[in-house]
Amino acid sequence: MDPDPTIAAIARWSGIAPPNEAARIGLADNAALITEIEAMRGTMGFEEEPSDFKAALRDCREPTP
């Protein structure tokens, strides 16, 4: 089992191994996003009210002149 817990979890859940060294670097690149999500924790969350993206697209159309 890979000593990196994320890589081990991917192998366990998805059956996919790092295809090359760049994949490990790419995985490390996720760290910036994780840091950003940590910083926003408490301000982000699942939208509890029913929300539909297509409805939002329709509702946000240009006002009719």
Partner: peptide, 25 residues
């Protein structure tokens, strides 16, 4: 390499991202 990184995202964050799409728009 890029695809591989996509398997690391927790599912709840993906679902959250979709749930917030309309409100953020």
């Amino acid at each position: 390499a890029r695809l591989f990184g996509g398997y690391a995202f927790p599912a709840h964050l993906y679902v959250e991202a979709l749930s917030r799409r309309g409100p953020l728009l």
